[in-house]
Structures are given as structure tokens and as C-alpha cells.
């Protein structure tokens, strides 16, 4: 391993891997940093199919889609540092400097001419959508429930209420049902579901799971472990309508209420946050106008609903980052 690279990619999800491949193809020296013990990002836990329909015209599962990219990364001889955590990222003159840590290497430094941020996103939690009532165990975000079931083989509950009709929530409704749990229903505060229609069809309708639109969870009940939720209808201004409350017994509440780009590592750089997407402002080459040489792609840029477009954004960022590094060298 060197300690200077043309392009350093942070995050080895589909966006990061695609950008690394493109930058490598264009002749740059590339290093990928990944904090998990393996590349693939969120795809590793998305064992359902529906990935790659646009790009490969195939119906792959998440891990299969990831596997394809990991093979290409191997073939291209691109280095990935897994189980490595970025502690600090600053720009010094015309170079990026970072401090990282891993159990294997301890604290160490790297320098890069260009940096691609492909750190994905995180889920909104119960506190961020202001759920009230008790604070028992048994409240999960959909992604967390997905990790428990798919990666670790544990059940978050046996009788679930799902709040929010995002795709991950819908997919988890099916997954829980297949694993023998009961799903009491999916509650969505808006008058229309936020997930794809095909997921309503194949995840809910196939298993007769009810979708309640214009209804939300108003209160959580249960001291130790969750025992029930109170649900209520809302008016056009999203205020609860008195008299429409109902108590739904359950032993877990799963939230699928939105994703937020994960860009905390950029806190020491003068990037501008895009109020709408939650990511940073970039030009159409995915570069930050405030921090030349800094590129952002995938869900760290804005939340995409299809991985195919995530990979595409990675290719754009990788290509531009490679060009930037080449110009910087001259």
C-alpha cells in the first residue's frame, strides 16, 4: 500500500465500487476505504431481487449485484481497505489528507488528489419523526430489522406493525411474513404510498397485508418491551383526527420513514449542504464547487431508489475524479 493515491474512494457500496472501477479504467491509482469487514454496502443485507434490471437487464439480488462488482474490482486489482474507519478528512493546499484507524494498522494517514464520498445513507429513527408514548424495546428501523433477520438470523418480533410505506418497509413486511411472523399492517401518514407500486403488489398484496393510508402511529405503549401502538388518522395538515384512534397490539414496531445521506465525514470541509436532498451541493460531474476535487455519489449524494442509477452516479464521479487527479498532476 502506498500513502498517496490519485483517487481515494470512501465507502465500498455499489456507488463507491463503480466510481473506483471507472477511475481505474481511466488510469488513476485508486484506493477504496470501507469500514465494514466486506465491500458491498447495504446490498449485502438486501437479499431480495430487483437489482440490476436497468443496467444488466437481469433480476439480481443485492448480494449478487455486489458480488459482480467485487469480482471486477478484484480483476482490476483495486485495493480495498476493509474494517477501516475514517477519523478525519481535511484539504490542505491541493491535497486531501485523511487520518484513519483499523485494528490491523492502527491510526495511519493517507493523501489523495481527489476524494469520492460514497458513504451511503442512514435511516430516520423514531425520535426524528417525533413518536411519543413509552420507550420500550422492540422499535427498529427497517434496515436494522433487515440486518437482524438476513445477516444474523434473529427475529425482531413475531407480531409487527410497520410505520411508513418506504420500499424497505414493504420488503420487510414480506420478509417477516416468510419467516413466520405476523404483520398487522403498514401505516402511512400520506395519502399515497412512498414505495414502488410493484413492492405494494408483491410484498403486501401477495400476503394480504393491509396498507392503511392517511394513518400513523401516535403513541407507543409498553414499559419493557413494546405491547401495542395507538394509531390514528390524520387530516390534510397531518394533524391527528380525534376519535379515530385505535390500539393495535404488537411486539415490534418497524419504521420505514425515510433515509438521509450520510455525510458527517465532511464536517471539516466547507461544503454546502443541499436542504432538499440532505446531501451536498455538487455540479453535474458530482463535484463540490466549494471543495474542488471532492466528489459525491450514490446515496451519500441523494437517496436513489434504484441501485442501477447509484452505480451510474458512481461512474460519473469516478470519471470526473480521475480527470481532476490527472490535471492536478500536471
Amino acid at each position: 500500500m502506498k500513502n498517496v493515491y490519485d483517487v481515494i474512494v470512501i465507502g465500498a457500496g455499489p456507488a463507491g465500487m463503480a466510481s473506483a472501477l471507472t477511475a481505474r479504467e481511466k488510469g488513476s491509482s485508486v484506493l477504496i476505504i470501507e469500514r465494514e469487514d466486506r465491500p458491498g454496502g447495504i446490498l449485502n443485507q438486501c437479499i431480495h431481487d430487483g437489482f440490476g434490471l436497468v443496467k444488466f437487464n437481469e433480476k439480481l439480488t443485492g448480494p449478487e449485484y455486489a458480488d459482480r462488482y467485487v469480482r471486477w474490482i478484484d480483476e482490476a486489482g483495486i485495493e480495498i481497505l476493509t474494517s477501516t474507519f475514517l477519523l478525519e478528512l481535511i484539504k490542505d493546499e491541493d491535497e486531501f489528507r485523511m487520518k484513519l484507524v483499523s485494528a490491523e494498522k492502527g491510526v495511519f494517514s493517507l493523501r489523495g488528489k481527489a476524494v469520492v464520498v460514497s458513504t451511503g445513507c442512514r435511516e430516520r429513527s423514531d425520535r426524528q419523526i417525533f413518536i411519543h408514548g413509552d420507550r420500550p424495546a422492540g422499535i427498529f428501523t427497517a434496515g436494522q430489522a433487515q440486518a437482524f433477520i438476513n445477516r444474523m438470523g434473529y427475529m425482531p418480533g413475531r407480531r409487527a406493525v410497520i410505520l411508513g410505506s418506504g420500499d424497505i418497509g414493504l420488503i420487510m413486511a414480506r420478509r417477516l411474513t416468510l419467516e413466520g411472523a405476523e404483520v398487522e399492517g403498514v401505516y402511512e401518514i400520506q395519502s399515497r404510498p412512498s414505495g414502488l407500486q410493484r413492492n405494494i403488489s408483491q410484498c403486501l398484496n401477495d400476503f394480504s397485508i393491509p396498507l392503511h393510508l392517511g394513518r400513523t402511529v401516535s403513541r407507543v405503549i409498553g414499559k419493557g418491551r413494546i405491547e401495542a401502538v395507538e394509531v390514528v388518522s390524520v387530516d390534510e395538515r397531518m394533524n391527528p383526527v380525534k376519535g379515530t384512534e385505535a390500539i393495535v397490539p404488537c411486539d415490534c414496531l418497524i419504521l420505514s420513514v425515510g433515509l438521509i445521506p450520510e455525510i458527517d465525514i465532511l464536517k471539516d470541509l466547507p461544503v454546502v449542504k443541499d436542504g432538499k436532498t440532505g446531501g451536498i451541493v455538487t455540479d453535474d460531474r458530482m463535484e463540490s464547487p466549494q471543495v474542488p476535487g471532492l466528489f459525491s455519489c450514490g446515496n451519500a449524494h441523494h437517496v436513489y431508489d434504484l441501485v442501477d442509477y447509484v452505480s451510474e452516479s458512481g461512474e460519473i464521479a469516478g470519471s470526473a475524479a480521475s480527470e481532476f487527479a490527472r490535471e492536478a498532476a500536471i
Partner: peptide, 16 residues
């Protein structure tokens, strides 16, 4: 439908 799920494994450190 195509069915996707997980199976148990006997591989250490890999439960499913």
C-alpha cells in the same frame, strides 16, 4: 414468484 431467503450455515462467524 422467485423466492429469496436465508439458510443456516455451519461456517464459523457466518450464521446465515
Amino acid at each position: 414468484r422467485t423466492l429469496q431467503t436465508t439458510i443456516r450455515t455451519a461456517i464459523p462467524g457466518c450464521r446465515r
